[in-house]
Each structure stands twice: as structure tokens, then as C-alpha cells.
Amino acid sequence: MAAGPYNYSYIFKYIIIGDMGVGKSCLLHQFTEKKFMADCPHTIGVEFGTRIIEVSGQKIKLQIWDTAGQERFRAVTRSYYRGAAGALMVYDITRRSTYNHLSSWLTDARNLTNPNTVIFLIGNKSDLDAQRDVTYEEAKAFADENGLTFLECSAKTGENVEDAFLETARKIYQNIQDGSLDLNQADSGVQPKQLPRTTPAGGGDAKQCNC
């Protein structure tokens, strides 16, 4: 379980949000495993994935939290928003209702993350163009209005998936470079490379369960 050598400069924390069934877990799986997971069970609470990427020659570890989509779970998943450097907000291009709910997801993302959090809009299932229910132009206009970066992706074919995750990281990195993202802030969502802790705090003499 030891962390091993830290061969990256930063950790960026991401969250993936959006309605149920839009393909959040599949996007994560495609990004971390480069595979499409058909019939992937729905997420309860949160799932977690990581991958190390490279931005401007710097190795960055992405720590990605994939959340449950059903409204009922928001009370539980909200606690994961805090300290996210990037938020991927996903809708399904074949289901308009998932697009219509974006403003409520955006409100949550804005309220619960810090002002520098990069929010990236993803229209998933671009492979199902025949069943399209939301046009690219409409979503692009929504993204521009709200200052979001936008891409249509397909977790199934992998189209643009890599780009969405990497572009978000580039933006975050840019924010670090130009100083708009303060790394000393507790909820910046970015951790610079740190040395492994020698003794886990509180764990040194705690090998015995005192129950």
C-alpha cells in the first residue's frame, strides 16, 4: 500500500458529475483503462480512478472521483466536490433531459468548488449521432455563455476522451503557471509533489484497537 516513488510533480483532483446513465463511469474507465465497459453497473456513492499524464513536460497524477448521478445521492456526493481542481460535467447527447439539468449541476459545481476550478462540459455518446437529441451548436453556445470548455466525446469509441481529460489538466496547469491558482489554498485541488510521510500521523502508536 506504500505510495512508492513519487514520479510526478503534482496531483490534480477531478470530479465527474452529471445525470444518471450519461456515461460518467464509462468515460473514467475509457480514460484510465482505454477500454469500453459495456453494462457497467451504476455507481453508488463515488468510485475512484487515477492516471499519470504529462503536461508541458511535467508529470501529473490525476485523481478522479466519479460520482453517482441520481438526484437522491447528491447529499452524499456533494462532499466530494470540495477541493476539486477540475470538474467534468457530462450529459448524454441522445437525451435532452440530461442536457436540461446541466444548469443545476453547474450551480452545484460553482457553489461547492473554488472559483478557479476548471469546469469542462462533455457531451457523451457522440457515436450515437443518429439518435442525437442535442445539437453541437446548442451545447457550444451554452458552454460559451458559462465560460466552460466543451467537447463531444464517446466513451464507447474513445473519441475525444483523452482530449477532455488532458485539456482540463492543461488549463489547471496554466492557472498554476500564471499564479491565478494558489497552491497554498486548502481547496485548490492541486497538491505539489510531497515526500512520503515517514510515520503516519496518529498511527505510530495506534497498532492496537482499543475497543
Binding site: I44, G45, V46, V76, P200, A201, G202, G203, A206, C209
Partner: peptide, 23 residues
């Protein structure tokens, strides 16, 4: 109540909320 030391450690790791046990 049953394992306060572990709870403290989870607190240090910032996961003492135990949200991941929801499932």
C-alpha cells in the same frame, strides 16, 4: 466508539466522513 485510533487516522487522511462506505 470501537476503534478511536483508526478514526483519528482516517481524520488525518481526511476521509473520516466515511462517505465511501455508503455503498
Amino acid at each position: 466508539c470501537l476503534d478511536p485510533d483508526l478514526t483519528s487516522y482516517l481524520y488525518v487522511c481526511e476521509v473520516s466522513e466515511l462517505i465511501f462506505c455508503h455503498k
